[in-house]
Design a protein around this nucleic acid. Structure first.
Lengths: 221, 221
DNA sequence: GAAATAATCAAGTATTCTATTGACTAGTCA
DNA sequence: TGACTAGTCAATAGAATACTTGATTATTTC
């Protein structure tokens, strides 16, 4: 009857790769763009050795690839489909796990989040320059890819950037995606300083998944 | 900075659920329709207790649900999206793991497999009755859902059914999907008996995933 | 009520996975 | 050359998993 057992064993390799919270976080970070081991470790709060080993597991499942240049090894997703897969997993979690839904609700309920309804209209206004779109992720991730017309404004440097912003112009801030706190923080800060600011829930991966274009490199500054 | 760590922990529940070959096989079977523990155990070649425990893990990840009626507990996918997720995982495997691709090639290369190009035309002819569409899975799965116009012809009973078939009419056989051997066997048998038969790679889940309608219940016999 | 059956539970062992530690390799820069 | 750095490797202890076996819980049937 020649069973297809070996197939399930292979697919389980992928399952095992995404069976650890630490690896999921690393994958999520890599969805934002390539990064060095050290940078990943720091962002995820893991030791270097531990991070290296998790990356090695992900590599064993062919989900990421690393390339050494100089002292650093830069890891990146082996394929854009890996990012889609992560998003599918996340969507399944949202749908099936009440716990995920509860965590997400904390984000969505926040009053500063943009309603999907308003999204289209606002993005149109961004294009016309009537609204400012801020990318509040670290500059590294902005460089890897960002939304069209977005200005890089890392949360850390936001305070010093405020001086250059016109106080009347409405601001839309985004970060890594629906699970990320950076944009929430940014909106809080901006509002405290008297700006009109809202949060865009989408990050670059979500934007890309909708088939919309992203900009790679320095872009507008 | 209120990290989103708990989120990754939750998503890892899903990852762990699909980190075992046995559980993947059970999921795959459940994509064909609801089944009892005993029936799943037998099909997957696992002990009853082991199967029960794996199902319990899947239930813990909210991927399946069990319902007791009489002596039997019938398990089913908790949601159709679980089946889509399994297919996404499988697609990622096909794309990223050379080993999966190698296994699949054995199926696709088989000369009796229908080319995707011919598929549309042939299905049109099935609808017109010019071609016979055979569902060679166990009757239980046919009952759970089958393709329109398909006739139930479990591989085990195929031999006795041949008498009722007209030898000139071309036959298309399908089973659980691209990984399943049933239709391959059926085509081999049919050809040995002098019939013109080809294999349709799609199963009910693939058909459904393409947004096409399926028939639930007895259907044509 | 007693026997039979489907499934689950509980316990035990072998295996695998995780995170840490310290050693090691390779590349850089003075 | 020698000091320094990023990352990997190797070994380890502890935690989690897998599968088996035998007992237990419901439910049906006689």
């Amino acid at each position: 009857m020649s069973t297809a057992k070996p197939l399930y064993e292979q697919l389980a390799r992928l399952g095992k790769a995404v069976a650890s919270p630490a690896r999921l976080e690393l994958l999520d970070l890599l969805c934002q763009g390539p990064r060095t081991v050290e940078s990943l470790a720091q962002e995820a709060g893991l030791s270097i050795a531990n991070t290296s080993q998790h990356l090695r597991v992900l590599h064993g499942a062919r989900l990421v690839e690393g390339e050494k240049s100089g002292l650093f090894v830069t890891y990146r997703l082996a394929d854009p489909s890996v990012c889609s897969f992560f998003q599918t997993l996340r969507a399944l979690g949202e749908q099936r796990l009440a716990e995920v839904d509860a965590i997400l609700r904390q984000f969505r309920e926040a009053p500063e989040t943009l309603e999907p309804v308003e999204k289209d209209a606002l993005l149109d206004r961004i294009q016309k320059g009537e609204v400012i779109l801020l990318d509040v992720r670290p500059a590294e991730e902005y460089r890897a890819a960002h939304l069209p017309f977005a200005v890089s404004a890392p949360l850390k440097d936001l305070d010093s950037l405020l001086a250059t912003l016109r106080r009347r112009k409405p601001i839309v801030a985004y970060c890594r995606g629906p699970y990320c706190v950076l944009a929430k923080e940014a909106v809080r800060l901006l509002r405290a300083r008297g700006f009109r600011a809202v949060r865009l829930e989408d990050g670059v991966p979500e934007w890309r998944a909708q088939g919309l274009p992203v900009v790679v490199g320095e872009g507008s500054k």
